[in-house]
Design a protein around this nucleic acid. Structure first.
Lengths: 181, 181
DNA sequence: CCGCGTTACGTACGGTCGTACACATCGCCC
DNA sequence: GGGCGATGTGTACGACCGTACGTAACGCGG
């Protein structure tokens, strides 16, 4: 039971390093050998800890999705009224969950996998469900759904657009979407 | 006797087949050999027609982006007033540009590349610029920008969400975004 | 009809990949 | 202390990869 020689978080570290590597070279460029080298573990550790590349990828993106979801919920839970809820959504879009280039790239990689393979779609579905639930604490279901889509779209634009976005644009979009007829 | 010798559209066919293959197995799963087999051309044709994998991918996604852009412009050009412009946007989201699973997957693959490599970001930027210009024929610049983001977001949700979307949701979203204070 | 440049192809090479599997190293129990 | 499972590692194998390059098939001016 106690027989662990070294490095109890090795498995977890491999997963983290794998995410970093994906952000850098893409899922396409990741290999057992590169992850092993980056995590400074022997190649044999890869097959020892993970049944195959799929298992590693699924665990890595599972962790990533859960982390994003947690940040989202946290941010929304701090809002108390309509105005602060709107502000929370703006914060999520402009600085929070996808603030870094790393997270933006990882999000796209995950979506790409999800668009083709059902196993990954479960991850994105769970993520979207949690986001919507968090939004529904402050908005009606239809608005929550639309907001969720808007967040997605504005995030992507922020990721790909080269020209800097207007500061008030996001605020304006959130205001319009959260203003029913 | 070796047939095939003269085949003027070969290069073009390779590009099309490459897109199909990407949709099926992802950029990660594409190789010169697989494309050659799928297009029924010898392996040597790959290096003959394309300097390398990058060139093939860039041409393929260039064609894809231009096709999507064309459809977008066409659809918007048919609108004559505010109401028909709104309807055109709804049509784009729900049935048109990303109507097929193939196109959805390809869009994500392109975004993933663009999020990491500037060469592909030029493609997505040109695409987004054309979309915005088409929208600005009917909407003010800020609204056009927001609409563009909304289209992106709703499209992604349509792609990944398993549960069927409410029919009126998209219409409602477009109405809200295109209704300034 | 004949060279001959252009176009296109077949193949072979060096490299990276995932993974299996023999083997080393440890803690524990007797 | 000595065997013995459990835990972890090093390495080798076969598959697949991109690409370079020698060579064959063609069109055409002479």
């Amino acid at each position: 039971m106690t027989g662990r020689r070294h490095d109890p978080d090795r498995r977890s570290r491999i997963i983290d390093v794998c995410l970093d590597l994906i952000a850098e070279v893409g899922v396409a460029g990741v290999s057992h050998r590169k992850v092993a080298a980056a995590a400074d573990v022997p190649l044999g550790s890869m097959t020892y800890h993970f049944a195959g590349m799929d298992e590693l990828l699924r665990e890595a993106f599972g962790r990533f999705a859960r982390a994003g979801s947690d940040g989202f919920e946290q941010r929304m839970s701090e809002a108390t009224d309509l105005e602060s809820a709107r502000a929370a959504v703006v914060a999520i879009i402009t600085q929070d969950v996808f603030g870094t280039q790393r997270d933006l790239v990882l999000t796209h990689e995950l979506y790409t996998l999800a668009s083709r393979e059902p196993a990954y779609r479960e991850l994105t579905n769970a993520w979207m469900a949690r986001s919507r639930a968090a939004l529904e604490r402050h908005f009606d279901p239809v608005t929550a759904r639309l907001l969720d889509a808007l967040i997605e779209g504005l995030t992507i634009h922020r990721a790909l657009d080269t020209e800097a976005p207007q500061p008030g644009t996001v605020t304006e979009a959130v205001r319009r979407i959260t203003t029913p007829a």
